[in-house]
Design a protein around this nucleic acid. Structure first.
Lengths: 101, 101
DNA sequence: TATAAACGCAACCGATCGATTGCGCAAATT
DNA sequence: AATTTGCGCAATCGATCGGTTGCGTTTATA
C-alpha cells in the first residue's frame, strides 16, 4: 500500500476528483455523478485520495462530505521548485537574448 | 501504454532521476550508478520518462546522454494552479486575521 | 581484428491497479 | 415497523507495473 500524493494523482479520474472538489466539499454520490464509473469505483478513488491526505471527510448524518486538503498539494509544488527554476532560467535567457536585438 | 507525465512521476525512482538530471545530462550508466537497481531497470525508467517527453536523448558516439525537458514539468505546474490559489487564499485569510489582532 | 563497453529490446514473473459485483449497516423516509 | 438511501468493505479478475535475465548491435579499445 504505497500511498503518496504522486501515486494518487497518477490516475486521471483522481485528478478530476481533486479538481472537482476545488469548488467545494461533496458526497461520494455527488462526485460519482460527474463520472461514467460506478459509485464503488469512485469511492475507491476517494479512499486512496483520503489515505494519502489529499481529502478529509466530514460526516453529516448518513452523508459523508469529502473536502479538498489543498495543503497536501504543496508537497508537489515544493518538489517542483527545482524544475520551475529551470524553465524560468530559460525564460530569462530568452529575455536577455531579446534585449540584445 | 498510458504515458503521461503524471504516471511518470508516480514512481519514486523516476522522480529521483528527474531531480538528478537537473544538474545536467547523463548517460544511463552514470544514472544507474546512483541507484541500487540494475542498469536495465533504470533504463526502463529512462525510457518511460523519454516516452512522455520529460527527457530528450542526445547520441554521442556509443553513449546516449539524457537531458531533462523542464518544459514538460510545466504541465503539472499549470494543473496545480487551481490548488495553489486555494492555499494562497488560506494564507491571505490568516494574514487578514493576524491584522485584526 | 578480437575484445570490451554502452546500450536497446524482448520475454518473463510476481505484485499492484482499476473496475465490477455482492454484501452489510446505519441513517433517513414512508 | 418496513423500505429506501448513502456508504464502506471484501472478493474477484484482467491489465499494467517494476524488476530480472538474456541477447543483439554498434562503437570504442587493445
Amino acid at each position: 500500500m504505497r500511498r503518496d500524493i504522486y501515486q494518487a494523482i497518477a490516475d486521471p479520474t483522481r485528478r478530476a476528483i481533486l479538481t472537482l472538489l476545488v469548488s467545494g466539499a461533496m458526497t461520494p454520490n455527488a462526485i460519482a455523478e460527474h463520472f461514467d464509473s460506478s459509485r464503488q469505483a469512485v469511492s475507491k478513488h476517494i479512499q486512496i485520495l483520503t489515505e494519502c491526505g489529499a481529502l478529509k471527510q466530514k460526516q453529516q448524518g448518513r452523508e459523508i462530505y469529502y473536502q479538498l486538503e489543498a495543503e497536501k498539494m504543496k508537497e508537489i509544488d515544493v518538489w517542483m521548485t527545482a524544475f520551475r527554476k529551470m524553465w524560468m532560467d530559460k525564460f530569462d535567457q530568452l529575455d536577455n537574448l531579446l534585449d540584445t536585438i
